[in-house]
Amino acid sequence: METEEQMSWFKRIKEGILTPTKEKKELPEGLWYSCPKCKHVVPNNDHIENQKVCEECGYHERASSEEYFKIIFNDGKYLELDADMTSGDPLKFTDTKKYTDRLKATQKKTKLKDAVRTAVGEIGDNQLVVAAMDFAFIGGSMGSVVGEKIARAIDYSIANNIPFLMISKSGGARMMEAAFSLMQMAKTSAKLSQLSKAKIPYISLLTDPTTGGITASFAMLGDINISEPGALIGFAGPRVVKETIGKDLPKDFQTAEFVLEHGFLDFIVNRKELKQKLIQVLNLFKK
């Protein structure tokens, strides 16, 4: 529908820009959210209210640890564990940048201490220990802090007989910690073996993306493994697999749906139903 105003492009009524600079109104950044999948545009506030799930097509945008804590815990209340733990630099690692500088810059940018946060709180009538990863922190990569915080969260679960939920979201190992990073796979698995022996439920939620050493350790070891729609889940990254086989990959390769179909997930849950589903699972274990 064309209005008079639009037509004025061709038939300019007034000359030049008439608004003085001081009266110019800036459009605040991030006011709108455009879904990368269906291009649906909504006000950002509505999008966040909708737990970062596109109201049109159900696309799940990546969420932070804070957002998951707010979704899961009653009234968004929780007690954070080991909140002040940060990375050392055992290898004095330098690539294009010093690891210590990279850490400092990332901490400043993300306001996070490292790539995982752990907390305990209530969900429905249950207590739950949750470890949630932050992709914003060096791709959610696992170094000593990630391994240690998860290990201690599991210790907390065991000591207090509280079920454990791991929300994975990571590209895999943190290369700047090399073999230290690798051994976090062993450490977290060691703790999970103790949790399992204590017969305390472990729910693993694999979110977009969960790959590499994360998939090859705690993420795949849940008593129940669940995921969100469309999440990328795999061991090798899709690019590497493509190079290996020299062919194009199937369309839904390494999506949560693909992984469910191949028998490595119990179910896929929409983020908006996550809390209810978790309560259901916890109650089933309890009763």
Partner: peptide, 18 residues
């Protein structure tokens, strides 16, 4: 490889660790 992913390479390694 592709089939390694289909058959759960990550799960297989993780299972061995625990």
């Amino acid at each position: 490889g592709l089939e390694a992913e289909e058959r759960g390479q990550g799960e297989a390694i993780a299972r061995n660790l625990i």
